[in-house]
């Protein structure tokens, strides 16, 4: 057993762990921080992405002991998690506005990866967003709306305002016209 101390979403936790304990399992099973899910065993899917000292990391491929002393932010601690008065991070808002999630399993990792992407590249092209998220697999959305969401959040974070989402704040004037394009 090794002693580890880490700050998770603003709270410091000290625990004894087996050295082989994966960070994501430590968070989920010991600390009850279950917002970060696991989707694979080969570091391919990105469902488990969170931030270690501000950078995106696949938490299934880090040992809890390697995170000793680290400052960890999960989807639950991103602005919008508990303790932040429900204010959402612009990336979270954009994911809803652009329907960038369906089942939501990839979403925590997708959002955390996107936040990191925009930290390092505040004004990405569509192609840069797509490549920036190449370590995150989503089986539901086909990515189009995820890409839109990230581009919109980027614009908002640059102070240029979010892009209009797909959703309608008001009821449509008439039932959907035939032959609508999107």
């Amino acid at each position: 057993m090794a002693r580890v101390s880490m700050k998770v979403d603003g709270v410091v936790y000290e625990d004894h762990v087996e050295p082989r304990t994966l960070l994501v399992h430590h968070l989920r099973e010991k600390l009850g921080r279950v917002g970060t899910p696991v989707g694979c065993d080969t570091s391919n899917c990105g469902a488990c992405i969170l931030h270690v000292d501000g950078e995106s990391v696949k938490s299934c491929s880090v040992l809890a002991v390697q995170a000793d002393g680290a400052d960890i932010t999960t989807i639950q601690g991103l602005d919008g998690g508990e303790g932040t008065d429900g204010a959402w991070h612009p990336v979270q808002t954009a994911f809803q506005e652009h329907h960038g999630l369906q089942c939501g399993y990839c979403t925590p990792g997708m959002v955390m990866a996107a936040v990191d992407l925009l930290r390092t590249n505040p004004d990405p092209t569509e192609d840069e967003v797509r490549h920036g998220l190449e370590g995150n697999l989503c089986r539901c959305t086909g990515y189009v709306n995820i890409v839109k969401a990230v581009l919109s959040a980027a614009s908002e974070l640059r102070g240029q305002g979010a892009h209009r989402g797909s959703f309608q704040d008001a009821a449509p004037a008439q039932a959907q016209p035939a032959g609508a394009r999107a």
């Binding site: 279950v34 917002g35 970060t36 899910p37 999960t74 989807i75 639950q76 991103l78 919008g80 998690g81 508990e82 959402w88 979270q92 994911f95 809803q96 999630l101 089942c103 939501g104 399993y105 979403t107 925590p108 959002v111």
Partner: peptide, 12 residues
């Protein structure tokens, strides 16, 4: 559905 999914409060 999105609120809980986006904030890590999903019940998998």
């Amino acid at each position: 559905e999105d609120a809980k999914l986006l904030t890590g409060q999903t019940n998998w």
